[in-house]
Design a protein around this nucleic acid. Structure first.
Length: 869
RNA sequence: GCCCGGGUGGCGGAAUGGCAGACGCUGAGGACUUAAAAUCCUCCGGGGAUUUUUCCUCAUGUGGGUUCGACUCCCACCCCGGGCACCA
């Protein structure tokens, strides 16, 4: 009799796995491949159970697939560049590399302690020159293709990070993603960008390939983020300023143009200054503008902020109606989106409505609901067509608005903006057309007349990758006084980080303050040149790391395309919802760039994505800053890795948040002890037994019952693993099987050793993906000498299929949908058999008595329902 | 405001049209023990009737609907969580 000793067992098997190299893998075209990956961790301090859950889920998948005969790639590495390392280094007066490597060592020790089945030979660390040189290599390739460029622009600056942030890193309407209490400032800086917008269309369109295998909300979030909107750009001529260029506006609702009562410019619009030069109330307007520009820095409550604006004193001409409408400046118009100018249609846009109400602009209605006979439209004629003209029609006359148009109920003002599609009205020759058709015809008209064109506008902007910090990939370019910007030649890569930077966390970038780094020579003339001192956003590192796993030690290229061709795309990616936009969008972009460089042959890098829930304690996510973490190593020391793994899988389905409970984990610990005792008790008797031959002859009832429940459990557990990822209910089934075996004790009475062996082996195999150490140990105790990790997953075949079937069924009998009794009937009983037996049953008879059976519903082997009146 | 999730015992959760509450935690009782721990067994949604057995009834956020039958499908609403939010 041995006690379950997880510390001993777990160390023993981890050593054996490493010695036998069971998780090391190579491309092998004779086997189906399976690439399962958990998102690469940022190694920060100690690992807690929130991290652990992610890896536990991935490891179950990897182990199940391995047992099912797949060639499994399951690697791990480190997202090792980043600000926390630099900040910690400043604080402790050490080097970021020291802090980072200590953390990596700690994380690695923890992951090894949990026995995850990684191929550790493939481990990568993004802060190593062997890795980041390929960031630089990709950058140069993008530079050649015009996908990397430099421009001066307004950027998001986090005063705490002392660096710029990408748009994606600005959260909660204007705060830093790393410092949620810090407002992001707006600064004008010269920055490096990657042209994500060049792939905007593909990034939206290819989301279709992911439908059904990525979580719907991730797809929606990406689609919203890219924000493609189809509309038209139109030119409005400034009527009363000589030499002023026309104002270009973007609209998705060209059909509402007859209702435009103002042009509104963004405060930062280049034309504003010119218009004000010539403005009667120039001084006042300029002070308002200054105020507006200042307050627009605070983007925090932008959506709720009041709309303010002022009249420039000038007018523009509506190209459709010929009407002169005032040009305003408004704080709610964004320079970054569209053209930085809009036409305001108060009757059909909520924002314009609000603005017009405040400043008393007219709100003529030009679209009416097409829904028949609503209260508003009841009085309207049904056929608007008589007023409509084809696209060949002449430019429409200026519409006569107001009470003169007795054919509609609109009298020039609306109570509420009507923003839906409907029928055009008061729109000259386009009146009466459904909105969709009006949009088409009016766009065509504008194109024909040359004052507008069809246009697609994206919310997505280019990815700003410049960071003014040390601990990242240097951008490989130099600036020569004579030859300007020069890429570092490929053969000179990597551009190494200087080993001993001065890190202060203040002022300019640390690299700029390191003269030996800045000093360079021009690749063209050899003369003195200045090296670029920005480093890359760390999301560059994580955009392609999963390719490097396929070929981690390649010194000639980021990877061998043949190897990537074998492993890609990733079959299953697992990580938190927090990366729904940033990491996953950049990765998709990177993949498309690599495809166009001829490096990979697929459109999308990740076939299936799973976003697991968080581990919480006290109702909030575990995090160091909240101080509510349960350390993974502590867990392993107290209960062992298997108990920790089992509990995180059992306590909640993987997609849901999990509330950590110290009490509940005891249950998982008890269960493993219970299973271990069972195997231990029978090991001696079973170890040398021959395998069972599945011969049903001569089986005792006890044997049959035990085998039946075992096989049924096996089938259900397999389904939970493969089809539904319901690990919690898989574990529940295994617990139930264990309980059944206990109730059949003592097994020595009436259960032959070979049948006991069959039952206990299946129990062990079912547990193996989740609690691999104890399973290996029990597998060995049961007399197996080959390891469990590549043992075939148990599947019912031949005689076993018969043995799994119930020979007696319990059929609930309902009367009018309420269960009145359950009947035991032999398997294969017909409807007539069941009905006859039911009607003879006293409990049923009580409810049927005196009534007429009007209907009888029988679901074979499931249920009988008698409908009575 | 818009778009996703979700709402089931004291708790985590199970059941995706067919016996609601599997499995686990907590709690109660029993067995073993000198005793304790560990272990093993039994019970554990509410109300009522009957009294060691069993039966009835209510109950899956609320109100309707579809169906022989609804936690599950449809409609409306309430609450909780998350995402997006002047994107023209």
């Amino acid at each position: 009799m041995a006690d379950y000793n997880p510390q001993e067992i777990e160390a023993k098997w981890q050593k054996r796995w490493a010695e036998a190299r069971v998780f090391e893998t190579e491309a092998d075209s004779s086997k189906p491949k399976y690439y399962v990956l958990e998102m690469l961790p940022y190694p920060s301090g100690t690992m807690h159970m929130g991290h652990m859950r992610n890896y536990a889920i991935g490891d179950v998948v990897a182990r199940v697939k391995r047992m099912r005969g797949f060639n499994v790639l399951h690697p791990m590495g480190w997202d090792a560049f980043g600000l926390p390392a630099e900040n910690a280094a400043i604080k402790n007066n050490t080097h970021p590399r020291v802090w980072t490597n200590n953390n990596i060592a700690e994380f690695q020790r923890t992951l090894r302690r949990f026995g995850f089945s990684y191929d550790w030979r493939r481990e990568i660390s993004t802060c190593e020159p062997e890795y980041y040189r390929w960031n630089q290599w990709f950058f140069l390739r993008m530079l050649e293709r015009g996908l990397a460029y430099r421009k001066k622009s307004r950027v998001n600056w986090c005063p705490k990070c002392c660096t710029v942030l990408a748009n994606e890193q600005v959260v909660n309407g204007g705060y830093c993603w790393r410092h949620e209490d810090t407002l992001v400032e707006s600064r004008e800086l010269e920055q490096w960008f990657l042209k994500t917008t060049a792939y905007a269309d593909q990034l939206v369109d290819d989301l279709k390939e992911l439908e059904g295998s990525w979580p719907e909300r991730v797809i929606t979030m990406q689609r919203n983020w890219i924000g493609r909107s189809e509309g038209a750009k139109l030119k409005f001529v400034v009527a009363d300023v000589k030499g002023a260029p026309p104002i270009e506006i973007f609209t998705t609702r060209i059909d509402t143009i007859y209702g435009a009562t103002a042009i509104i410019l963004a405060p930062a619009h280049p034309l504003v200054a010119k218009l004000l030069d010539d403005s009667p109330n120039r001084a006042e307007a300029e002070s308002q503008l200054a105020q507006m520009k200042q307050s627009s820095v605070k983007t925090a409550d932008l959506a709720t902020a009041e709309k303010v604006g002022f009249f420039t004193g000038h007018h523009a001409t509506n190209p459709f109606s010929g009407e002169k409408i005032p040009i305003w400046v408004g704080n709610f118009v964004l320079m970054e989106y569209g053209t930085g100018a809009i036409m305001a249609v108060p009757a059909h846009d909520e924002r314009d409505f609000e603005f017009a109400t405040k400043y008393n602009l007219p709100k003529p209605a030009v679209v009416t609901s097409s829904k028949p006979l609503s209260a508003e439209t009841a009085g309207q004629p049904k056929d608007f067509r008589e007023n409509a003209v084809g696209s060949e029609g002449a430019p429409p006359p200026v519409s006569e608005r107001g009470s003169s148009d007795s054919r509609t109920s609109f009298s020039g003002a609306v109570e509420q903006p009507f923003t839906e599609y409907g029928l055009s009205t008061n729109s000259g020759a386009f009146s009466g057309l459904p909105s969709r058709i009006a949009i088409e015809k009016m766009t065509a008209f504008a194109e024909k007349k040359g004052f507008g064109r069809r246009e697609i506008v994206f919310r997505l902007r280019d990815w700003g990758i410049s960071r003014q910090r040390y601990w990242g990939t240097p951008i490989p370019v130099v600036y020569c006084p004579d030859h300007g910007l020069q890429p570092v030649p490929y053969e000179d890569l990597p551009v190494l980080l200087p080993p001993n930077p001065k890190l202060t966390g203040e002022g300019e970038s640390p690299l700029a303050a390191t003269p030996e780094f800045v000093k360079a020579s021009c690749p063209k003339c050899g003369g003195p040149a200045r090296r670029e001192t920005d480093t890359m956003d760390t999301f560059v590192d994580s955009s392609w790391y999963f390719y490097r796993y396929c070929d981690p030690h390649n010194e000639k290229a980021p990877f061998d395309s043949v190897k990537v061709g074998y492993w890609f795309p990733i079959d299953q990616y697992i990580g938190g919802i927090t990366h729904a936009i940033l990491h996953l969008l950049y990765s998709r972009f990177w993949c498309k760039v690599m495809r166009d460089l001829g490096l990979v042959g697929h459109n999308e890098p990740i076939s299936r994505l799973f976003t697991q829930g968080m581990v919480q304690k006290g109702g909030v996510a575990m995090s160091k800053s909240r101080g509510n973490v349960v350390g993974a190593i502590d867990m392993a020391e107290k209960y062992g890795a298997d108990t920790g793994r089992l509990y995180t899988l059992f306590a909640a389905p993987p997609e849901k948040d999990l509330e950590w409970s110290e009490e509940s984990i005891e249950g998982s610990w008890r269960f493993l002890n219970r299973v271990f005792r069972l195997v231990d008790k029978h090991a001696a008797a079973v170890r040398d037994s021959k395998d069972w031959n599945f011969d049903p002859k001569g089986m005792t009832d006890k044997e049959r019952d035990l085998i039946r429940v075992t096989y049924q459990t096996m089938t259900r557990v397999t389904q939970d693993f493969e089809k539904r990822w319901h690990f919690n209910s898989a574990i529940a089934q295994i617990m139930e099987l264990t309980n059944e075996i206990y109730l059949a004790e003592p097994l020595e009475n009436g259960v032959r050793p070979e049948i006991r062996k069959e039952v206990l082996q299946i129990l062990t195999l079912l547990l193996a993906p989740m609690t691999p150490h104890i399973a290996e140990e029990m597998w060995e105790m049961l007399g197996n000498t080959d390891g469990l990790s590549n043992a075939p997953w148990p599947i019912l075949a031949g005689e076993q299929l018969e043995l799994a079937k119930d020979n007696e069924l319990e059929i609930p009998v309902q009367v009018n949908g309420r269960v009145r009794t359950t009947l035991k009937v032999p398997a294969g009983a017909t409807e007539a058999d069941v009905a006859a037996k039911a009607k003879a049953d006293a409990a049923v008879a009580r409810h049927v008595e005196g009534k007429r059976i009007v209907k009888q519903i029988y679901v074979p082997n499931k249920l009988l329902n008698l409908v009575v009146q």
